[in-house]
Design a binder for these strands. Structure first.
Lengths: 209, 209
DNA sequence: CCCAACATAAACCGTGCAGTTCAGCCGGGG
DNA sequence: CCCCGGCTGAACTGCACGGTTTATGTTGGG
């Protein structure tokens, strides 16, 4: 699944990863327009000529970085769940993961850049959506199905329930992060949001107690 | 509240609004970096010289547009609520308003640009946050307080409850809009999200029936 | 009718950036 | 020892853009 290896457009070689890494850093920091190829080459510790020997142009390089990062994002999401613990514990674990991701520099960076560039690069938005939100939803749905079959939850629309939970985890926090109001999110606020999300979710979907 | 009129930095004049309008269009379409001053002048039907006679530079023009648009956004939010209707109806009304805004070209545009530029222009993120999400929260909190005092709802943390509801309205829809997957949101999906949000909110905060 | 203030189009300047070229350097394999 | 391919850095091209200037209208008030 990972390697098609047959793409004709991009050469490989010793410093390939180096270039990609530098590009990652700079694009995530400065966005597509903001990043200069010279910056990227410097950051990567590579000459511009070398960079252009690997990638035909800035756009392709950017798309390659974006794709790689989306894949990485997906990896992060995969190890989300699959537990037999009490529902509330599993939900808390998932919530913490979700919030940790969106608080991280990486999470914020890739989100920002995808939002900003997703109409200049339509497939980028698509890629991000499927490797992020959709991935989370799928993991969550898997778990919810199990829990429901054990009679711990009562859910009709699993996709919706999953989306709702993920959304609840963002309450207050996501906006503050994105728009940079008091950049660091106090653990107190995080706990409040998580507790709130779990409480709400259980009130709606918890088996009648 | 609207006019301080004492700002020394920006001249007024006949074509002031024209310029601002053109800038609005182009910035919302192309972002800050993407927009060229020539484009803006052309769009505004004004010469570049005229434009620069009103605004000292691109940044100031941008901030002025952004501030204006944030204010507009706030206006949209204000007429949200204050009703005596059944809770579910009021919530549905609010949800429709929220979704309508974020589906609109204007809503998507300003969100995108604020996300993209909020670290180049820190006060922009701040402005957007306060004239958007915070505004909605305040209206919602006002209403929730009333409803709670009438015994129709039982809520401890009103701000959290308001944020949660607003967040629930985004489920699935927001991401799809932002990242441009099947750009138009089917009314069916909207209804599903709204119904889901209301159901969840009432399950959590509805007075014991 | 004229003058002053404002508007316009167009040329212009400096800068920064994507992308190219080239002369040279390094390391490894014949 | 030499050759060859990858790498380097630095210079260079072309272009687009932010911002300024200029020479020419256009308008409206005294």
């Amino acid at each position: 699944m990972a390697e098609a290896e047959t793409k004709p457009k991009i050469r490989k070689g010793r410093k390939f990863a180096q270039v990609l890494d530098g590009a990652r850093t700079v694009f995530l920091r400065d966005g597509f327009e903001g990043a200069s190829v010279d910056d990227i080459a410097r950051e990567a510790g590579v000459s511009k000529a070398t960079l252009y020997s690997y990638f035909p142009d800035k756009q392709l390089l950017f798309m390659e970085v974006a794709k790689t990062e989306c894949a990485r994002q997906a990896d992060e999401a995969v190890e989300l769940i699959h537990r037999q613990a009490p529902v509330r514990d599993v939900l808390r674990f998932a919530a913490e993961k979700i919030i940790a991701f969106m608080s991280s520099d990486f999470g914020r960076g890739i989100f920002r850049i995808c939002v900003a560039e997703s109409d200049r690069f339509p497939q980028l938005g698509h890629e991000f959506y499927h490797s992020g939100p959709i991935m989370v939803r799928e993991r969550l749905v898997d778990y919810l199905r199990e829990a429901a079959s054990r009679g711990e939850l009562v859910i009709e629309d699993f996709e919706l329930a999953a989306d709702q939970f993920a959304e609840l985890c963002k309450a207050d926090i996501h906006a503050r992060l994105i728009f940079g109001v008091d950049s660091c999110c106090a653990p107190r606020d995080v706990k409040r949001t998580i507790d709130g999300a779990i409480e709400m979710f259980m009130a709606r979907y918890g088996a009648a107690r």
